[in-house]
Design a binder for these strands. Structure first.
Lengths: 256, 256
DNA sequence: CAGTGGTCTAGACCACGTG
DNA sequence: ACGTGGTCTAGACCACTGC
């Protein structure tokens, strides 16, 4: 490989004084890396080429590649491991199992004791979901409802919406057999990596249905969390409406 | 300045192969910068010395200072402005006025229309507050209760606790006269810069008192937000228990 | 025009993981 | 012993700000 000619050479934009739309080299490299990630050239959990190899491929210095990777690592798309290499982030792995779950037990360690799939059906996208997922209302979506319990106590009721064209073959059956985080399943089975999410949180009274499933009184306050998750390129790929019981748990957040 | 002898020279630790407790030079520089910030050598809003000047002072290269500053900027303690310099972050400034406030109007722009101080008294620290602020229960704390309204609609009821030894002379009167974010007041009047905060969020029923002040039905669901704010050195300096009405507002959060 | 932060390079050496 | 990422340096040049 060491003598192979460059194939993906970065453009020269940014090397001269074009003041309009100036983009630093490392940002362009970052863009190329993002494309490779999106394209699936390197799969979640795999190592990407070493910094020197990438520097050779793009015909830039190692330092420039490094800065591009630094930013991707800061965004949790890549994970650096000294002495080993740089790896594509994945939702498989105990450490990041709750990467997007901010609900935390008030005391001690409570652990996920079960995920019960209540429903999994394919329907035409409701207007609000279609808008959030950049779909038309004619498009099909997969709707999943499930109940998560911690130490046998039902705590989270999720209502999940996924674009049907991407998540073909996702059924109640395949979900029922699966153990582990949904986002890991999305990676392995559908090639969809969730990279970022936005949440809107409110306090609302539990509906009768929700109350029954969560074993609380109807109308009692619950946390309503609407999440939109994005893959590479900020493409929305999931809407998740969660209802959390916050009697023994709280939503934890850090402000910087 | 260019020929002045170094005064704060960084230690040589990290330059040789001391595998135990290895700390990179730039981390040491970062520590020194943090000390200067904590000590108040550079005040919020002011520029710190240029990278070259700091490099000279610490007897390291510009690149090493740069990496230290990069981290402090990533943590929002410093703000880089190309062509102008690097500045100490401040809560004065319209742009960061809501730096720690995640409550967002559902639609359109609603604006803060009023802050009403309900109470401001000095009391012995309740046990839970003392624990959160690293105080003893014999120590005095300042307790502030206030009501924030947006477009004339009461929305946030805050119960704020501050260490009395630091916030001397903070009275209902001085608070009443003040216009602007509390954190800006803390900077100007008491030299306390809030740098980071942790929040725990729950859905709870509004108490009668809360309901009356917030003009909602007693028992209706509200967001309860417990915040602990920290200055430099991760010293807790404020406990804030907020109750938010989330009918026209939501708590917004980004997950990475 | 001078000063500041921002980019890019090239090279030396260190720490870590794996054979 | 080797390859990976991590640190540190020195120097050149660019972009932005303000005098």
């Amino acid at each position: 490989m060491s003598t192979s000619p460059p194939t993906d050479q970065a453009s020269d934009a940014g090397r001269s004084s074009n003041s309009a739309a100036f983009s630093p080299l490392y940002q362009q490299i970052k863009g190329l890396l993002l494309q490779s990630l999106d394209r699936g050239e390197w799969k979640p959990g795999e190592a990407i080429p070493s910094e020197l190899e990438l520097a050779g491929r793009f015909q830039v210095s190692q330092g420039t590649v490094r800065k591009a990777i630094d930013e991707l690592a800061a965004e949790n798309l890549l994970i650096r491991r000294q002495g080993k290499g740089t790896f594509v982030a994945t939702h498989h792995e105990a450490k990041v199992r709750f990467r997007f779950l901010r609900l935390t037990p008030d005391d001690a360690k409570q652990s996920l004791s079960g995920s019960q799939v209540l429903e999994c059906r394919r329907v035409k996208a409701p207007a609000d979901i279609a808008a959030l997922l950049d779909l038309r209302t004619a498009d099909m979506v997969v709707n999943i409802r499930r109940l998560l319990s911690f130490d046998q106590i039902p705590t989270i009721l999720d209502d999940i919406w996924l674009p049907g064209s991407v998540f073909r073959g996702l059924t109640a059956d395949s979900l029922g057999r699966y153990r582990g985080p949904l986002y890991a399943l999305f990676e392995s089975e559908f090639g969809v990596s969730m990279v970022r999410a936005e949440e809107k949180i409110r306090a609302v009274p539990a509906t009768h249905d929700q109350a029954e499933l969560l074993q609380v009184a109807a109308g009692s306050p619950v946390l309503q969390v609407e999440r939109v998750s994005y893959t590479y390129g900020d493409r929305p790929m999931e809407v998740r409406r969660g209802v959390y019981v916050t009697e023994r748990f709280h939503y934890k957040n850090s402000l910087n």
